[in-house]
C-alpha cells in the first residue's frame, strides 16, 4: 500500500450555538474524535446525513478551520500555521470543490480568467505559460478555449462544475476535497463529471476526499468509505465490501434506504425518528434512539471504533468480530 498523504488523528471541533436570542449557549459537537488515513492516489468517501459533520471534517482537513484538538498531517508533516509563506505553498497542493459551482465562480469574470487566478496568486510560471496552462486545463476538463471566454451564466451546470474543477487543478494539487460535487447536477451530467473525475485522478495521481450523501456516487469513486453519524465515524471499510455487507445498524439502514431500480421496497429498513440534532446528542451511542437493535448498554457507553475483520472497523456494541452476520 502506498504511504499516506493525509492523516487525520483524532480531530474534534465544537461550536457553541444559542437557541434564540437570549437562549443558553449549547455546545454542538460537529466533529468528535475522527481519525482517517488517505493513501496517495486513493479516494476516501465520506457519507452521512446532514449534520453528521462530514463537511466540517473536510474543512478541517484542508486547514480552512482549526480543530479544537487532534492533528492533521499532510505528506508526513503537521499542517503549518495559517498565514505563513509555508502555509501558502502548502495550500497550493490542496484544493476544494463545492456543490454549487455558480456560488464558487465570479459571475462577472470570464471563466478562463478565473481558472488563471490561482496561477497568479501563487505566482506560477510566466504570463505566457499561464495562458498555455489555462488552455491545457480547459482541454483536460473536456471544454474548448471558446468556453473559457464565456461568463459563468452562459454555461450549463455541468460545464460550470468542470470550470471549478479546472481551476482547482491549476496549481497541480496533490489532494482534492470534493464536497458534494455532483449533487446539484442531473443524472446524465453527473455521470459525465464522475467519469471525468475518475479519469483525472488516474492521469494525475490525485488523492481525493469525496464527501457526499449519495451512496451510489461514493461507491463509484471511492476505495475506502467512512460513514459518519453525529460527528463520529460509525463504520469504515473498503467501498464494495461496505455497501455489500454493512455491519453497523445505521449503515444497514442507509444502504437499504437507497432506492434501486428493479427492487421493490419490501424488506427496507425504515428508521424511526428524526435526523439527529448535533446540539442535543444522545448519551451513549448517538444512534441508539433510532436503532432497531439497541440494548441497555447502548444508552450508557459510547462504542469505540474497532476492527471486526478484514479492513473493516465498526463502532457498535452489537457488532464484534465474526458472529455478526445475523442481521443480514
Amino acid at each position: 500500500m502506498s504511504p499516506p498523504l493525509v492523516e487525520v488523528c483524532d480531530i474534534s471541533r465544537t461550536y457553541s450555538m444559542r437557541s434564540g436570542m437570549f437562549g443558553r449557549a449549547a455546545a454542538v459537537h460537529a466533529v468528535d474524535g475522527v481519525s482517517l488515513t488517505i493513501p496517495k492516489g486513493q479516494t476516501l468517501g465520506l457519507v452521512g446525513e446532514s449534520g453528521s459533520g462530514k463537511s466540517t471534517t473536510g474543512r478541517i482537513v484542508l486547514g480552512l478551520e482549526p480543530p479544537d484538538s487532534g492533528e492533521v498531517r499532510f505528506d508526513g508533516k503537521p499542517m503549518v500555521a495559517p498565514g505563513t509563506a509555508a502555509w501558502r505553498a502548502q495550500r497550493a497542493r490542496m484544493q476544494m470543490i463545492f456543490q454549487d459551482p455558480l456560488g464558487a465562480l465570479d459571475r462577472r469574470l470570464p471563466v478562463a480568467t478565473q481558472i488563471r487566478e490561482p496561477l497568479d496568486i501563487h505566482n506560477l510560471g510566466t504570463p505566457a505559460e499561464r495562458e498555455d496552462r489555462v488552455r491545457d486545463l480547459l482541454r483536460a476538463v473536456e471544454l474548448t478555449p471558446a468556453h473559457g471566454a464565456r461568463y459563468p451564466g452562459a454555461l450549463s451546470g455541468g460545464q460550470r462544475q468542470r470550470i471549478v474543477l479546472a481551476r482547482a487543478l491549476a496549481t497541480k494539487p496533490d489532494f482534492l476535497v470534493c464536497d458534494e460535487p455532483v449533487s446539484a447536477l442531473d443524472v446524465s451530467i453527473q455521470a459525465q463529471v464522475v467519469n471525468l473525475l475518475c479519469d483525472l485522478q488516474a492521469q494525475l495521481g490525485l488523492t481525493l476526499l469525496f464527501i457526499s450523501h449519495d451512496l451510489r456516487v461514493v461507491r463509484q469513486i471511492s476505495n475506502v468509505v467512512a460513514v459518519m453519524y453525529l460527528g463520529r465515524i460509525v463504520e469504515i471499510g473498503s467501498a464494495d465490501d461496505l455497501f455489500a455487507r454493512p455491519e453497523h445498524p445505521y449503515t444497514q439502514a442507509l444502504v437499504s434506504a437507497s432506492p434501486a431500480p428493479g427492487r421493490r421496497s419490501a424488506g427496507r429498513i425504515v428508521l424511526a425518528g428524526d435526523p439527529p440534532n448535533p446540539a442535543a446528542r444522545p448519551q451513549g451511542c448517538a444512534f441508539h434512539p433510532r436503532c432497531p437493535r439497541a440494548i441497555a448498554r447502548c444508552t450508557r457507553e459510547v462504542p469505540a471504533l474497532s476492527a471486526v475483520g478484514g479492513n473493516r472497523q465498526v463502532a457498535c456494541h452489537l457488532v464484534t468480530g465474526a458472529e455478526t452476520r445475523d442481521a443480514a
Binding site: 455541468g158 451530467i189 461507491r219 464494495d240 431500480p261
Partner: peptide, 24 residues
Amino acid sequence: QGLIGALPPLDGPRRRLTAIPGTV
C-alpha cells in the same frame, strides 16, 4: 437507456458510467 446507464450501481462490479454526451 442513457439515464439508467448513468446511474452508478450500488452492488456488483463497478463499471464506467455511460454518460449521455452533451446537454439538454
